[in-house]
Each structure stands twice: as C-alpha cells, then as structure tokens.
Design a binder for these strands. Structure first.
Lengths: 162, 162
DNA sequence: CGGCGATTGTTTGGGGATCAAACAAATTCT
DNA sequence: AGAATTTGTTTGATCCCCAAACAATCGCCG
C-alpha cells in the first residue's frame, strides 16, 4: 500500500530552485503535501516501533467496520485491482492481524475479519494515527481543517476520471 | 515517478461501506483525493495520446527553469534518492526530451537540459496540465482554489517529518 | 435439472518506484 | 600529495499497479 514510497521531505538545502508554474498547480501542491504527510505517518509509526502504512491502516479500518467483507468489495472500496490486494492480505494475515474465513453463503468469496490480536493492534494504530493527524494539522485551526477536508472532497468530485 | 500508480477511482458501486473514522482523517482524504487527481491526470494525457506522469512533468519544468542543474540538485528538489533518478532520466533522455551534458566546471556532475524537442513537448504538456487543472478545480471558485493551496502548504509545513 | 455465463480469488508476467550499499571518477580540503 | 567528500551508476531487495489466464463456485435460463 502507500503509493508514495516515502519521498521524504528534501532538506530543502538547495531550496532556491525556480519551480515555475508548479507552485500554482493544485495537483503539484497536492502531491508534495501528500508526500510530506506520508513521511510524517511513517515517522510516527517508526518512532513507536510499529510497522504500518496508511493504506494498511485504511484497510484494517474498512475490514473491522465491515466484517465479513469480500476481497472484491474491499478492493473496490480501496480502488485497487483484486489481484493487487492478494499479497497485501497475505502479509496482514501472516502478521496475525486478519483472517480469510470461508463465507457460509458464497463459496467463492472470503469473509474478511480482524483477529482479536488485530483488533488490539488497530486500537493502538488508531491512537498513533491521531497523534499523526494532530501534527499535520498543527498549523491549522479546527475550522481550517474542516474547510480543507471539504475542499479536498470537492476536488475529488471534480477529478473523477470519468 | 508518480507514486500513486493510478489507483483509479473505484466505480463506487458498492459505495455504501462504513468508512468509520477514515472520513474525518485529513491524511485519508488527502490520499484519496491525490489518487483521483492522479487518475485524472493520466486520463487527460492518455486522451491526448501523450504519455507522461505528474512526476515527469514536474521534473521537466524544474529542468527547463534551472538549466544546467545537476542530478543531485534535481533529486533533492524532487525529494528522491539520486539513484532513483537515474532510470527516470534514462527514459526521458531515450525519448529525446532531455540531455545530460558534461558540466564544464565540475567533472563529476551532469548539466541537465531540455532538448529543443523537449521544449516543444513541454509546451504541449503544459497546455494539457492546464486542462487537467481546470477539471479538478471545476467545483471550486478561484478563491477556494487559492485557499486550498494555502491550507495544503500549511499542512506540509506541519508535517515536516523532522 | 443441467449447462453456460459471470464472479471470485490466485498466480504469473511486466512496468515502475523507493531506498540502501558499494564503486569509480573527480573535486575539495588538509 | 593524500585523505575525505561528492556525484552518478549499478545492484539488490521491497513494494505497488495492472492485465490476463485459471480453477472453483454461483446463478440464471431454457
């Protein structure tokens, strides 16, 4: 998961580069911000000795809130191909955080669920995410944060790659 | 380049999933938005028969605005490792868009520059990016777009994975 | 009820992207 | 000069993405 493989924040030592149009491009600013946020997420978890990517966190939340979910439904919710999901679930399952149960109603699908250990881990992860969220929003008022989320949703609505 | 390998927008057919906390998490909304924007970018270029990622576009702009740039300086500006940059430049160079000239002052570094063909291509790419930008911001007023960019910069400032 | 099409999870194959470590060449510092 | 540092490459290890092919299973429809 976690598309932006860190891409940490360049120390900006030689920051006086001319970025031309880029600075006014929403897509560019969005990308850079996302990159910095990802790095902060990684740093937060690493500092706590926990290993998890933003994508994995989202996946775990989705599974725990929709127990019994099939892999197809989950893949659709995540916006990735079902074949991409397989190794990700393999890893999470190997870590003992979730299981692929047999669906009692449909032999083709797997009913995904968190293990008790997965539930516990997710609770801890959620606390870490809260810390992380607090940090990335530290320069924003709660009103600004709400505005930001609202505007981002609007962008997503407009982007829809039809 | 372009960390979020498309991750297209799920048709949201089975959209009635419970996303729990996720919807209120800035990091999550940011990730999804970035994903949709990336998909829109890809769709825009594909429709025009042009092949380019957001990362490549940013790189080209950086090079044309800072001709003679070294690979290290470019890598730092992009926030990636210098070894990651090598295959990316190889590809762009193979497409005849840029060249690695020998630096007259420092035998270790390469002086990057766009080829005439690269300049022409970038002009076209820029027009496509403008179209793309217009679409993703289509649900926002120009004031909202400015606000959004400002807030995103604030997030990036707060994130700084110190 | 029996078969055929659609769905699901997996595997395989092909692109890329990321970083870290090791190296040779060149520059800079001592 | 000699040592330390910098730069671009190569190699190695992970990881993500998608498309295509497959077997198993479900479901519809004659």
């Amino acid at each position: 998961m976690s598309r932006p493989p860190v891409n940490a924040n360049a120390p900006d030592l030689a920051a006086k580069l001319d970025r031309g149009v880029l600075s006014t491009l929403l897509g560019y600013v969005l990308r850079r911000t996302q990159s910095a946020v990802f790095a902060d997420f990684a740093a937060t978890f690493q500092a706590a000795g926990a290993a998890l990517t933003p994508g994995e966190f989202g996946l775990l939340v989705l599974v725990t809130r929709n127990t019994g979910l099939s892999q197809m439904a989950l893949a659709r919710a995540l916006g990735i191909d079902r074949s991409t999901l397989v190794p990700i679930l393999d890893r999470l399952q190997a870590r003992g955080l979730l299981v692929r149960r047999l669906s009692p109603t449909d032999g083709r699908t797997h009913a995904l669920a968190l293990t008790p250990s997965g539930d516990k881990a997710l609770a801890r992860f959620t606390r870490l995410v809260r810390t992380h969220e607090k940090r990335i929003a530290s320069h924003l008022s709660t009103a600004e944060t709400r505005t930001l989320i609202r505007l981002l949703e609007k962008v997503r609505a407009g982007a829809r790659s039809v």
